[in-house]
């Protein structure tokens, strides 16, 4: 039974990761067509991507969008989480529910809605529109991470700071933000990773300002090039790094909390 279960888990992982591994492997293969046996090891496809200005531009745009989205959605998400933590008000459950909704809407619908809304206010087809849409999509993740951290805070910690002469702003700066620092860092990484990968919404709202995933899809739609493998491997590594970083930060902060009590 146990062996069956293990085999089943291994199979599931194989299904998920095999395509990625294949793409990884072929991105370093010199052969134009992905076929076995593997030909010589080469970075030619990476070189090709770098040489093509359309990709470089798309990559640059993706980085800008991811960077700005990460900062904005973490800021807004932390603020929203703090409001929920600190205050009791009418409609609080609704407020939290609304904050969590965006990622639950199918991205296609979110994309169309964003396109319609942004063109109404004359912002569609710019990099701003991608950033705005990604902030909407990413903020709930930041809010969830920060809410979790705030819920671990000793309930009197904030009042203790006030009691020692720190006003509300000072307490925010000297107590709440330092306490939430691991969560803030983790949400910055996660939201950046989500934004880097996001294709559907960006496809609707980016117009001529294509981000990297949009560029890749447009390329694949017309021709099949091993460059796609190179880009895929590269972005996968980048996203994975960000997500792993976020996990490391969160796990590290948990470990510190769980340190055993020293005896006197």
């Amino acid at each position: 039974m146990r062996i069956l279960l293990r085999a089943y888990v291994a199979l599931v992982f194989a299904f998920i990761f095999a395509p990625i591994v294949v793409s990884f492997v072929f991105s370093f293969s010199e052969n134009r067509f992905p076929s076995l046996p593997l030909t010589e090891f080469s970075t030619i496809w990476y070189q090709k991507v770098l040489d093509e200005p359309a990709f470089a531009d798309a990559f640059r745009r993706s980085l800008i969008v991811a960077g700005v989205t990460s900062v904005l959605s973490t800021f807004i998400g932390f603020g929203a989480a703090y409001v929920d933590y600190r205050y009791r008000f009418f409609g609080q459950k609704f407020y939290v529910a609304m904050g969590i909704v965006p990622p639950m809407i199918p991205v296609l619908i979110l994309g169309v809605a964003m396109l319609m809304f942004l063109s109404q206010i004359g912002l569609s087809g710019t990099l701003h529109s991608v950033i705005i849409s990604h902030v909407v999509l990413c903020t709930p993740f930041a809010m969830a991470i920060c809410r979790l951290r705030l819920s671990q805070m000793e309930p009197n910690l904030e009042a203790a700071a006030w009691n020692l002469g720190a006003n509300q702003w000072r307490t925010m700066r000297m107590v709440i933000v330092p306490f939430c620092a691991p969560a803030i860092l983790a949400s910055a990484f996660i939201t950046a990773a989500i934004s880097l990968d996001e294709f559907a919404i960006a496809w609707f709202v980016s117009g001529l300002e294509e981000t990297l995933p949009v560029r890749v899809l447009n390329l694949v739609a017309r021709q099949s090039s091993p460059s796609v493998n190179a880009i895929g491997s590269f972005t996968f590594t980048m996203s994975l790094t960000l997500v792993v970083l976020a996990q490391v930060v969160l796990i590290f902060s948990q470990k510190r909390r769980a340190k055993p009590e020293a005896t006197s």
């Binding site: 700071a161 006030w162 009691n163 020692l164 002469g165 330092p178 306490f179």
Partner: peptide, 21 residues
């Protein structure tokens, strides 16, 4: 008078020490 201007420090039941300091 808000708490931060009262200068009446409190020793809390669970100490409420700042864990990051």
């Amino acid at each position: 008078v808000p708490p931060w201007l009262r200068r009446m420090p409190l020793v809390w039941q669970n100490y409420a020490l700042f864990p990051f300091l």
